[in-house]
């Protein structure tokens, strides 16, 4: 369905990738850790190595949580835009298929948040 209007109606897309000065938006969520109230949004260079994303950006974001130090990275399960996904740590975000406004989610098996509450 399109917008009912009194004339031609075309909306201006406010968040197309061209507006982010060479970066793309990437969303990230640590599943079942609602200590962080919502997923995060970042403007990132598409050629950022996945290893830098995991090794630099994620600690700065999540290390306040007591579960952070306990993560066994070999058992972490990833979703990229809703599909199961195994990242290539040496490849870039782009080459891993992470595009503008992609959503990455990671589950850390065995870690159930503060007091097992999913926090």
């Amino acid at each position: 369905m399109s917008v009912l209007s009194i004339g031609e109606y075309e909306g201006t897309v406010m968040d197309n990738v061209e507006r982010f000065h060479g970066n793309q938006l990437v969303y990230i969520n640590w599943e079942k850790h609602l200590f962080f109230c919502a997923p995060h949004a970042f403007p990132l260079p598409p050629d950022m190595p996945f290893a830098a994303f995991v090794g630099e950006l994620l600690p700065a974001t999540y290390s306040a949580h007591p579960d952070w130090e306990k993560i066994d990275w070999s058992s972490v399960e990833w979703l990229l835009d809703g599909e199961a996904f195994t990242p290539d740590m040496d490849a870039s975000l782009k080459d891993n298929g992470v595009g503008h406004k992609s959503c990455l989610r990671f589950t850390t098996p065995g870690l159930t948040g503060i007091g097992g509450s999913g926090s």
Binding site: Y27, N29, L34, F35, F36, C37, A38, P39, H40, A41, F42, A60, T61, A64, P66, C103, I114, G115, G116, S117, G118, S119
Partner: peptide, 26 residues
């Protein structure tokens, strides 16, 4: 679901580390 989260944040605050989420939300 919620009391454990709040008690943990209170504990952090007592240690002088009141939690402020430093990354912007989706």
């Amino acid at each position: 679901y919620y009391r454990p989260r709040f008690l943990h944040w209170r504990e952090m605050e007592k240690q002088g580390k009141r939690f402020y989420n430093g990354s912007l939300p989706m």
